[in-house]
Design a protein around this nucleic acid. Structure first.
Lengths: 248, 248
DNA sequence: CGGGAAATTAACCTGTTGGATAAATACTGG
DNA sequence: CCAGTATTTATCCAACAGGTTAATTTCCCG
């Protein structure tokens, strides 16, 4: 079933052998494929909507393998969630804001958050699913709780530097600012489906995405620096404006 | 089963009658109770996680009644979703921003959005559920698509007035601004469960909520007016700051 | 007051789903 | 090369969940 190509290859190589090998062992690979399939499944259908059989099928595995390598449905879900947090934390650590001008650092931060969410839509869906469950699984995960994001401290440093240098007018609370930046990016992308229907236009197309990023950067920087960017003044599509907008 | 109290009353009143009435007819009431129970169920468990039997039980109804009065599970869900949009649109229309100073109007708008989400947590959950479904149901609902929110036009007017009066420095795109305001409120509340675990503190307690509202108002107004509010400068809990924060 | 429509109940049916059992097959160390 | 263990497959199952059928009860109107 799995890795047929390799099996076929072996079939040729070992044509004289008594019998063709039906499958190969690959515990680590199997585990990875299971977790990847599970991530997609949970992100697409949520926890309750996810189907164990579908995960197995998409992993190219027998259903029994899920229970053998990871555990039951909830174990699987938690493993996926932990993996998702691990991944973003890892990428966050790669972001170096120390050597940048404070305004540039904030822009970089927004840019990273935005693009990470764009590149990893499953992460958004998983967080929503976990919040529907009132973080029931996260609470039990010492693993995730110990994965501190470097962003809040990064922001604290940047804001302090910005105030000292005169770039920023105010020492905003780094936790609030981080939540706000995440919020601006997260909501737009996570709710793009309903928002697109309500507004009657595709909020995920290139131009819309660019416009959104510019707006977010301009909004936050204007608040911090007191100076308004050119982008912040520019309305959506100058001249060509849809007759009626309907939010939320 | 339903309205036992009234049945008991009748049992006393009509003691001489041949037999006690087992139940009363109440189509409208029944429909409302079904939709209310369905709303809670879908908000708590999502579409896939919702249980038709539980909805019936919580509505004090026989399961057959759901199908008789509304339809199957998906019909039920769509009815709930449409009801949710109807409700928020109705309250939105009650908000009069025309006679307020532009900055005051924006503050009022944020305040309303924040408190509406606080008072109606099911609305947040329903939107998330619908977005998980890629707005599949919303797309088929001409009802919702015709329910235009008055907010974008309100914002457009307020922003124009603000720029003319000199209160605002820039003519921000009303659609972007509306999404941003919704985002700041929505994300914080919708993700409060995971965020609370990650940050190790209750983001829904009174002080945290007040602090958040102040931050959002300050952020948006600072960006629009160019003047910073006192609130915006004040860090979270002066002096008493948790050692490590971890965003997202 | 009685007959018929509307509303409600009780019981049932069938496909699905998470999970379990046990047998088969591949690999590894001796 | 063989024995024992790790990995994988095939099959089964009991509980559940959405939905349906048919009988029962209430109410309204002529």
């Amino acid at each position: 079933m799995l890795q047929l190509a390799r099996c076929d290859q072996q079939a040729i190589d070992l044509a004289k052998a008594k019998r063709v090998q039906k499958w190969q062992r690959d515990p680590e690979g199997m585990r990875l494929r299971i977790l990847e399939a599970a991530k997609q499944e949970f992100a697409t259908h949520g926890l309750a909507g996810a189907r164990v059989d579908r995960i197995a099928a998409n992993a190219g595995a027998n259903k029994r393998m899920l229970y053998y390598h990871v555990g039951n449905k909830e174990d699987l879900y938690l493993a996926v969630l932990e993996g998702a947090y691990e991944k973003i934390r890892s990428e966050e650590r790669g972001l170096d804001l120390e050597h940048l001008d404070p305004p540039e650092a904030i822009e970089r931060l927004i840019d990273f958050t935005w693009n990470y969410f764009l590149r990893n839509p499953e992460f958004l869906a998983l967080l929503n699913t976990e919040n529907l469950a009132k973080a029931r699984h996260l609470k039990r995960s010492t693993k995730v709780k110990s994965m501190h994001s470097p962003f809040v401290e990064m922001i604290r440093t940047v804001v302090t530097r910005g105030v000292e240098s005169g770039d920023f007018r105010v020492a905003v609370d780094p936790v609030q600012l981080y939540i706000s930046i995440a919020a601006l990016c997260f909501f737009y992308l996570s709710n793009s489906a309903t928002l697109s229907v309500i507004f009657g236009r595709d909020l995920l197309k290139k131009e819309a995405r660019d416009e959104r990023l510019a707006h977010m950067v301009a909004l936050v920087l204007a608040a911090l620096t007191g100076k308004s960017t050119a982008d912040f003044a520019k309305p959506a599509t100058p001249g060509v404006r849809p007759p009626a907008h309907q939010p939320v």
